[in-house]
Design a protein around this nucleic acid. Structure first.
Lengths: 101, 101
DNA sequence: ATTTCCAATCGTAAATGTACGATTGGAAAA
DNA sequence: TTTTCCAATCGTACATTTACGATTGGAAAT
């Protein structure tokens, strides 16, 4: 990035939709979300067993999904239980629906 | 990327959906697609006027959308007319719908 | 107090993405 | 043929992403 800040040239809608899309833009994250949809919830460790990826890598993907608002985690010591964030999920669904017409 | 190739560990569905999502993962590309949806078609130059971005940058975004299959361009010398690729658009729409349930 | 356990974070390396200006390519117009 | 025009591509710089192993953090168990 050099000259243009990319900050104010786009509408908020486009920015939010792009943010959601970006979070969905990796097959591992899609698979994590599919798993959460089917299981309703799961622990990080479950995912580490499912995917042949390092624990730190899974954690990073979860962090991105969390930052995008698509999932949420609640502590359940010593584990952490992750679920779909239903409210934002609905928002994302609506935005994609609206986008695709 | 170091150890895992990320090639065969995901289902094709997840990979394709992620590919579409990735293409949508930038506000400029969202905006381009919105514009194509509303106009049905447009030339590269139109977009260069709309967005405060270099011509080469717009071209790059168009290339990514084309590679993802979301748009197609037909030559109309000396211009190139870009349109939504309706077939793939429908596919993407269906995949997102299925994903969000 | 120490150990155990799970997950987050750190540090790092390599690949990819995003932007720019400059150059190239190819068709139409002069 | 030369010029003009539009868009693609090249070369480059810097940011971000993705992966790993190692370390840290915090709560529960010993």
């Amino acid at each position: 990035m050099k000259k243009v800040t990319e900050n104010s040239i786009h509408k908020n809608d486009s920015k939010q939709l792009a943010r959601f899309a970006k979070a969905l833009g990796h097959p591992t994250r899609i698979a994590i979300l599919k798993h959460l949809e089917s299981q309703s919830c799961c622990f990080t460790g479950d995912l580490v067993e499912i995917f042949p990826l390092a624990q730190s890598t899974i954690s990073q993907h979860l962090k991105e999904l969390k930052n995008a608002g698509l999932i949420q985690g609640e502590v359940n010591p010593p584990k952490i239980k992750y679920c779909i964030n239903k409210e934002n999920w609905k928002t994302a669904k609506g935005m994609f629906q609206g986008f695709f017409g």
